[in-house]
Design a binder for these strands. Sequence first.
DNA 1: CTGGGGAAGGGGCCC
DNA 2: GGGGCCCCTTCCCCA
Length: 518
Amino acid sequence: MANVNCTVFHTQIASIMEVLANAAVAEICKVVDDDYAVFRLEITQSQKENRGLRRKLQLLEMKVARERAERIVRERALASRPSSVKILDRYREMARGEGHLTGGHKSFVKPAGHNTWRDDQPITVDEGSRTSTQHVIMIESADTGPGVKLERSEGEEDPRQSRDIQTEMAGVPPVAMQDPTTAPVQPRTQHSITEVSGTLNTVLKTETNTLTVTHRLLHTGSDHRSDPERLEPLGCPPAEYLPIFRQRTVHSFGDGDALDTGGNDPSCSYATEMDPGNMPLVLETQTDLSRGDWNRHSSSGYSEGCLDKKGEGLVVDEVTVKVEGDVPPTWNAANHLGDGHSRGRDFLDYRKSLETNPDVITHSPLHMLGDRDPESTSRGPSDSHGHVLFDQAQGGRATSGNSKEKRFLCMFCNKGFSCLQKVEIHQRVHTGEKPFSCTQCHMRFTQAGHLKRHQMVHTGEKPYSCTQCHMRFAQAGDLKRHRRGHTGEKPFSCPLCENRFSERTYLRIHQQKKHSTQ
DNA sequence: CTGGGGAAGGGGCCC
DNA sequence: GGGGCCCCTTCCCCA
């Protein structure tokens, strides 16, 4: 009996212990679950908050970057109006001093193993080569410190990528916002500065050097006399000869089919420069028309130089006149200006025209003349000589006035011409295109007639002889000028004094030295 | 400083 | 409409 009671007692004790144990376990689990839930909730809220803050930060950075880009564009538009005729050097200096924009899709390939660029360091330009090179696209203003940098990482082909802007804000290290585990968004920004160099200082230095590269691209020219080595026809042309608004693979210059390596890129860097907003693009590189023009010149038999300098030929065909469509003019030939012979005058005049006529870059130059109201015509842009559009200028030479409708407008200065060929020739003033090259020297010309006239220098031909002396001249104008020496004619009189001069140039110099108000 | 020649740039006209 | 010619202009260099 006693054993039975003991057994029952033990059983009851065991049951009670089990119940208590279960209750304790349940209690513990409940507490753990509650705490875990609270903890998770807190984590979730923190993560959510972090995402929100991160998103705000990114939006803010994007906004700042856009504003900065726009401001730089405006500054650049103002700053890129040099007053000197030495456009090449001035442009180089200006680029050093103030900085320039690079093209939004321009890729500068930094030499491997270097974190910085030197000014004299050879630069290659790469586009979509999918190599293991770094593509650094920057919009930078040197005088404002670290700026907006557009960066496309290697292998990325999405043109929109270049529109992703990362701003290097002071006190906000780029890496601080990049948590690969908690921030799956914004993968683009993770191709960050560290890809360029290790430290911020190095980044800044790199950007400065990139500026050098940029201005090299901007102030290109074809001064063959001053820099004939650039004309090596077989090697890859230097970066100076690459158009800034198109990515081109330097290795493609020898391949005619590969010229338009940027053709699949619907965007254009100059759109970023001229208007970071939604300015339509008018860049017509390597269009059929221009290509045809080039081919025509190349086959004209004037010179072998037309073809064997195909690298420079890229300079030629950047601009094409379009008579239809409604696209704004986009001056895109800055990199082709500064020719030593033209002395940059036309480039400067064009810039002046931009100053005096901002509409040049804001409305289509391709309007038919008939579409222009008289007022707009009268206030139209000046030509390279400062004359108003359609004003018969050039020394008051008698013309038939508007006998021929000037339907074709220059896309740079809006000057009107009667036919497409004329405006194409004229636009070479802006583009620097010189399709006609001398076979006996490095001189190149915009017009076939100029080449023909130039070749008399080599032949020694002087068909214009003075009837009153032994002098002979290669140009009729020279003979005419010479004859004034015989006749004593001095048709140019100073309005401020009694001096008279046989040439307008003398009068002008006289006025500058004697009657200058400055 | 002026004058003169060489040569190139730009553009209009004519065929 | 396009090519060639011509004219005007301008810059550079030199005497």
